[in-house]
Design a protein around this nucleic acid. Structure first.
Lengths: 199, 199
DNA sequence: GTATCTATTGTACGTCTGGTCAATAAATGT
DNA sequence: ACATTTATTGACCAGACGTACAATAGATAC
């Protein structure tokens, strides 16, 4: 009674895509082996054949999510600004836009983050990814500190990077809470007002 | 075989406390009627007797969570500052400290927020609470705009309030991601640097 | 004291879950 | 051509789940 065959890689990818569909549509809590199998139009025994235990599927989905989410990248649009402050500005805008344009990825990432409270593997995996994210901001923050030493007395590049990451997350939450009212430009206008010298 | 009796109010409160313990310890996904009953040392049938369906228990827990979480309050410590900018500063610090001192409430609230993506009742309930939160910030933002009209050209009090709420959320996420490194004062020092004129 | 009400319990049912396993057929090697 | 490997499946299991319900005992009314 077996159906058509496929290579290990192809099958795993197919199953992970189905898992993403289920998880982002119905939540990680409703991510069951049978639901994934139904989404992929396979038997649930086959899902277990490729992933052994549910836990491994959940972990593999987090890896897949991180890999397929477009990572933070200091593009040319950002790096062409001569002033570090303008580069930071552009980078923040880019990241706000990116997170609000990949709402399903972002939301699922937040769900995994919540899951991390009770599962160490998830917590460390997400912690590592956030550290990478923070490190990307740290570079631009070091340039900022060097360019305007007087303005940031007693503040480290690490501290600024953490604030930037925190800002992005708060922005992402806001965009998902109130997607109708959320507008990147309007949001940045408020930021400009609050942070003054960036304007 | 029935055990000791209690009034409706006392029993409901007891069950809701047990539900909070279970939900904050093991997550909303693991919030089962039987687990709540075991936590409260009652039969699971009694939990259903008082809440009819699981869905109603989940809703009642969200109400309980919102009611028992210390709400945003402009205390005297905040309102005694003459300059609106200093009041905003103090209010942000107060809220950052509050959220990081009620980590279980805050985390559970975020879990409900994630749940809201798929359950309309949860979404509207949380939306209403966030609106209340935003409204509390709006007052101080209006005073800020009046005091320093030049600095905030084209920015509305609503926009500033949304930014403030977003900031608090980002801060809360950061505090939970990295509770060891998180320090309110250090965080605010970075904020002062970024927002310049607040210092 | 007796009857009524109601908070509480044990039990039972049907469903869904993660996981195991033997059977099967497609692919591969020889 | 035949033997071996392996991807795939349906059937099955034990446990947990939400929910329903009759039975029971504490409280209250009369």
């Amino acid at each position: 009674m077996p159906g058509k065959r496929a290579s290990e890689d192809v099958r795993r990818e197919q199953i992970l895509r189905a898992a993403f569909e289920v998880a982002s549509r119905e939540g990680i809590g409703s991510l069951t082996i049978r639901a994934v199998a139904a989404e992929a139009e396979l038997s649930h025994a086959l899902v277990l054949y490729h992933f052994q235990r549910k836990e491994r599927l959940v972990h593999a989905l987090l890896d897949w999510l991180i890999e397929t989410t477009s990572v933070l990248h200091v593009s040319e649009d950002v790096s062409r600004f001569p002033r570090p402050l303008d580069r930071l500005h552009a980078l923040l805008q880019q990241e706000m836009a990116r997170l609000s344009h990949q709402p399903r990825h972002t939301r699922l990432f937040f769900e995994y983050w919540a899951l991390g409270a009770r599962h160490e593997w998830v917590r460390t995996r997400i912690g590592a990814e956030l550290e990478r994210y923070r490190a990307a901001f740290r570079t631009i923050m070091e340039e900022l500190l060097e360019a305007e030493p007087g303005t940031f007395a007693g503040v480290t590049a690490d501290g600024l990077a953490a604030v930037a990451v925190s800002w992005i997350h708060g922005c992402a939450v806001q965009a998902m809470v109130d997607p109708g009212h959320f507008d990147t430009d309007e949001y940045l206008a408020a930021v400009r007002g609050m942070v003054g010298q960036l304007a």
